[in-house]
Design a protein around this nucleic acid. Sequence first.
DNA 1: GACTATTCTTAGCCTGTGCTAATATCCAGC
DNA 2: GCTGGATATTAGCACAGGCTAAGAATAGTC
Lengths: 151, 151
Amino acid sequence: MSARVARGRKPASRRSDEQSAHSHQRTRSDHASELAEDYVELIDDLIAETGEARAVDLARRLGVTQVTVTKTIERLKRDGLATSEPYRSIFLTPKGSKLAVEVRERHKTVLEFLRSLGVPAKDAELDAEGIEHHISPATLAAMRRHLRANA
Amino acid sequence: MSARVARGRKPASRRSDEQSAHSHQRTRSDHASELAEDYVELIDDLIAETGEARAVDLARRLGVTQVTVTKTIERLKRDGLATSEPYRSIFLTPKGSKLAVEVRERHKTVLEFLRSLGVPAKDAELDAEGIEHHISPATLAAMRRHLRANA
DNA sequence: GACTATTCTTAGCCTGTGCTAATATCCAGC
DNA sequence: GCTGGATATTAGCACAGGCTAAGAATAGTC
């Protein structure tokens, strides 16, 4: 009682709801690729460092159980990013490798950028991990410009 | 065959797996609060603009169905951020209002910061939406410093 | 070559976040 | 005060991404 101001009337939708909706939709679709990006980056790292990527190592680094890793790898395989045979270690497809390189490069840029802003190393590392998946090419380019300008 | 380099041997775990695991865990826990933050921000906006927040309007702005909104509101209520009576519009608790204010303030800062870097308005808006939930206080402070310095 | 510890898989469960279809309620206009 | 259209709820489904418990395969050791 008192809460019904304009029931049943369409509030004109002044500002484009479409636009707002789109940005939220993009945020949602980003989420789908985030985990994939983290995994391919990590798989690539592990292969470079230890010669192979095993589920148990991925699990340790990600802080999840091996079972979760195995299920996620199945999705990566389905999406054409990784391959693996039962009881064998995990590899990236060419598509997966390419993604890994892009992700690492972007991660590096974001991290350096945050450091250049004066963010403490620890916070910068944590934040880079969180925001790297939401950076558009335009923003990435702007960060690179800023780094060059302040080099 | 050839993929088994050091099976069964613990690869020393040179760099702290703990640390890596923690950052991923934080990313995951952030996800839980992201939606909540988007909702309270939007609810607050709608109340300010139209006098009330209705599920149908939230749905339009978020690009999801009313059913999805209703279910999410249930979680917000469970978490003490919002209130609503059946067939009535949605309100924020004091806790929810406080969160909304913080979120809006942070959003504004991130958006202005991106604009100041020279990111086009459209990309800045999209990216701000994506990254605002992953910005630590330290990084937010750095953005404010940068804005003040370049004002 | 068999034993044991490690690793991987399978089965089954939960929560969050999305959907459609069907139903109930509300508000405005006649 | 009925009724039609808008809005909200309920029921039921799907998928992602987590988990534990139990069993199967592997690799290194004796």
